[in-house]
Protein backbone atom coordinates (compact mmCIF):
# COMPACT_ATOMS: atom_id res chain seq x y z
CA UNK A 1 0.00 0.00 0.00
CA UNK A 2 1.32 3.38 -0.98
CA UNK A 3 0.81 6.14 1.56
CA UNK A 4 -0.07 9.19 -0.50
CA UNK A 5 -0.18 11.41 2.56
CA UNK A 6 3.46 10.84 3.31
CA UNK A 7 4.61 11.28 -0.26
CA UNK A 8 6.80 14.17 -1.35
CA UNK A 9 4.25 16.67 -2.59
CA UNK A 10 6.93 18.89 -4.04
CA UNK A 11 8.62 16.20 -6.06
CA UNK A 12 7.15 17.53 -9.30
CA UNK A 13 8.85 20.86 -8.73
CA UNK A 14 12.18 19.22 -7.97
CA UNK A 15 12.00 17.12 -11.06
CA UNK A 16 10.61 19.60 -13.51
CA UNK A 17 12.94 22.38 -12.36
CA UNK A 18 11.83 25.60 -14.02
CA UNK A 19 9.58 23.89 -16.57
CA UNK A 20 7.11 22.76 -13.94
CA UNK A 21 4.01 24.42 -15.29
CA UNK A 22 2.37 21.91 -17.55
CA UNK A 23 2.89 18.49 -16.03
CA UNK A 24 0.05 18.91 -13.55
CA UNK A 25 -2.42 19.25 -16.41
CA UNK A 26 -2.17 15.50 -17.05
CA UNK A 27 -5.59 13.83 -16.88
CA UNK A 28 -4.27 10.33 -17.41
CA UNK A 29 -5.80 9.76 -20.84
CA UNK A 30 -2.90 7.47 -21.81
CA UNK A 31 -2.26 9.04 -25.20
CA UNK A 32 1.44 9.23 -24.41
CA UNK A 33 1.73 5.49 -23.88
CA UNK A 34 -0.58 4.57 -26.75
CA UNK A 35 1.91 5.82 -29.31
CA UNK A 36 5.10 4.84 -27.52
CA UNK A 37 7.33 2.16 -29.11
CA UNK A 38 9.04 1.35 -25.81
CA UNK A 39 5.67 0.62 -24.21
CA UNK A 40 5.92 -2.74 -25.96
CA UNK A 41 8.92 -3.84 -23.94
CA UNK A 42 8.54 -6.72 -21.50
CA UNK A 43 9.12 -4.17 -18.76
CA UNK A 44 7.31 -1.41 -20.55
CA UNK A 45 8.02 2.27 -20.49
CA UNK A 46 4.70 3.63 -19.26
CA UNK A 47 5.26 7.34 -19.35
CA UNK A 48 1.79 8.04 -17.95
CA UNK A 49 2.68 5.99 -14.90
CA UNK A 50 5.93 7.91 -14.50
CA UNK A 51 4.08 11.22 -14.74
CA UNK A 52 1.70 9.90 -12.11
CA UNK A 53 4.56 8.98 -9.79
CA UNK A 54 6.02 12.46 -10.20
CA UNK A 55 2.69 14.08 -9.42
CA UNK A 56 1.86 11.86 -6.48
CA UNK A 57 5.36 12.40 -5.12
CA UNK A 58 6.43 8.74 -5.03
CA UNK A 59 10.10 9.51 -4.71
CA UNK A 60 11.56 6.15 -3.78
CA UNK A 61 9.58 4.26 -6.34
CA UNK A 62 10.60 6.67 -9.06
CA UNK A 63 14.24 6.60 -8.12
CA UNK A 64 14.30 2.85 -8.56
CA UNK A 65 12.56 2.91 -11.89
CA UNK A 66 14.85 2.40 -14.87
CA UNK A 67 12.15 2.65 -17.53
CA UNK A 68 12.65 6.37 -18.28
CA UNK A 69 15.87 5.30 -19.97
CA UNK A 70 14.00 3.15 -22.47
CA UNK A 71 12.61 6.13 -24.36
CA UNK A 72 13.31 6.08 -28.11
CA UNK A 73 13.06 9.91 -28.11
CA UNK A 74 10.60 9.87 -31.04
CA UNK A 75 8.55 12.50 -29.17
CA UNK A 76 5.23 11.21 -30.49
CA UNK A 77 3.89 11.52 -26.93
CA UNK A 78 4.63 15.21 -26.90
CA UNK A 79 2.94 15.70 -30.26
CA UNK A 80 -0.26 13.91 -29.29
CA UNK A 81 -0.70 14.86 -25.63
CA UNK A 82 -3.98 16.78 -25.48
CA UNK A 83 -2.89 18.65 -22.39
CA UNK A 84 0.49 19.80 -23.65
CA UNK A 85 2.23 17.94 -20.83
CA UNK A 86 5.32 17.13 -22.94
CA UNK A 87 5.81 13.63 -21.55
CA UNK A 88 9.07 13.30 -23.49
CA UNK A 89 10.49 16.26 -21.60
CA UNK A 90 9.17 14.80 -18.35
CA UNK A 91 11.04 11.60 -19.12
CA UNK A 92 14.28 13.51 -19.65
CA UNK A 93 13.63 15.52 -16.49
CA UNK A 94 13.15 12.30 -14.52
CA UNK A 95 16.46 11.00 -15.89
CA UNK A 96 18.19 14.21 -14.83
CA UNK A 97 16.63 14.03 -11.39
CA UNK A 98 17.74 10.42 -11.07
CA UNK A 99 21.29 11.35 -12.06
CA UNK A 100 21.24 14.13 -9.48
CA UNK A 101 20.03 11.74 -6.79
CA UNK A 102 22.17 8.80 -7.76
CA UNK A 103 25.28 9.29 -9.86
CA UNK A 104 25.22 5.69 -11.06
CA UNK A 105 22.44 6.85 -13.35
CA UNK A 106 24.80 9.19 -15.17
CA UNK A 107 25.15 7.79 -18.68
CA UNK A 108 28.70 6.92 -19.59
CA UNK A 109 28.13 8.47 -22.98
CA UNK A 110 28.10 11.79 -21.15
CA UNK A 111 31.67 11.30 -20.09
CA UNK A 112 32.57 10.28 -23.64
CA UNK A 113 31.08 13.42 -25.06
CA UNK A 114 33.03 15.35 -22.44
CA UNK A 115 36.22 13.58 -23.27
CA UNK A 116 36.05 13.47 -27.08
CA UNK A 117 33.17 15.70 -28.02
CA UNK A 118 31.42 12.73 -29.56
CA UNK A 119 29.54 9.53 -28.83
CA UNK A 120 31.47 7.75 -31.57
CA UNK A 121 35.21 7.62 -32.25
CA UNK A 122 35.10 9.82 -35.32
CA UNK A 123 38.86 10.19 -35.25
CA UNK A 124 39.60 6.49 -35.33
CA UNK A 125 38.22 5.49 -38.71
CA UNK A 126 40.77 7.25 -40.89
CA UNK A 127 41.43 4.36 -43.18
CA UNK A 128 37.80 3.74 -43.98
CA UNK A 129 37.20 7.41 -44.56
CA UNK A 130 40.21 7.74 -46.78
CA UNK A 131 39.06 4.81 -48.87
CA UNK A 132 35.86 6.71 -49.61
CA UNK A 133 37.68 9.84 -50.62
CA UNK A 134 37.01 11.64 -47.35
CA UNK A 135 39.53 13.35 -45.07
CA UNK A 136 40.74 10.95 -42.41
CA UNK A 137 39.44 13.07 -39.59
CA UNK A 138 36.20 14.91 -40.13
CA UNK A 139 36.18 18.64 -39.40
CA UNK A 140 34.73 18.16 -35.96
CA UNK A 141 35.94 19.06 -32.52
CA UNK A 142 38.01 15.88 -32.68
CA UNK A 143 40.24 17.61 -35.17
CA UNK A 144 40.79 20.76 -33.11
CA UNK A 145 42.34 19.94 -29.74
CA UNK A 146 42.31 23.59 -28.69
CA UNK A 147 38.61 23.75 -29.18
CA UNK A 148 38.11 20.53 -27.27
CA UNK A 149 39.94 22.09 -24.32
CA UNK A 150 37.62 25.10 -24.41
CA UNK A 151 34.65 22.78 -24.74
CA UNK A 152 35.73 20.91 -21.63
CA UNK A 153 36.44 24.11 -19.76
CA UNK A 154 32.91 25.22 -20.51
CA UNK A 155 31.42 21.97 -19.32
CA UNK A 156 33.51 22.05 -16.16
CA UNK A 157 31.24 24.88 -15.07
CA UNK A 158 28.07 22.86 -15.37
CA UNK A 159 26.45 21.23 -12.36
CA UNK A 160 26.72 17.70 -13.58
CA UNK A 161 30.44 17.90 -14.17
CA UNK A 162 31.12 19.98 -11.09
CA UNK A 163 29.27 17.56 -8.86
CA UNK A 164 30.75 14.45 -10.39
CA UNK A 165 34.12 15.65 -11.60
CA UNK A 166 35.80 12.37 -10.84
CA UNK A 167 33.88 10.81 -13.71
CA UNK A 168 34.76 13.40 -16.31
CA UNK A 169 38.26 12.90 -17.55
CA UNK A 170 39.99 14.92 -20.20
Amino acid sequence: MIDLTKANHHLWKEIMEEDAGDIRRCFNCGTCVSGCPAAEAETPLMIRRLVRMVLLGLEEKLLEDGTPWMCVTCTACEEMCPMGVKPFEVGLAIRRWQTRKDETYIPLSTTEVFQTGHTQPVEKVGELRRSLGLPEIPPTIAKFTELLKKFQAMLRETEIVKNNDYMFKE
Binding site: W69, L92, R95, R96, P107, V161
Partner: peptide
Protein backbone atom coordinates in the same frame (compact mmCIF):
# COMPACT_ATOMS: atom_id res chain seq x y z
CA UNK B 1 20.79 9.91 -24.04
CA UNK B 2 23.81 11.99 -23.11
CA UNK B 3 23.74 15.44 -21.53
CA UNK B 4 20.01 16.06 -22.06
CA UNK B 5 19.50 13.14 -19.68
CA UNK B 6 21.94 14.50 -17.12
CA UNK B 7 22.02 18.29 -17.12
CA UNK B 8 19.78 20.50 -19.13
Amino acid sequence: GTFPSADE
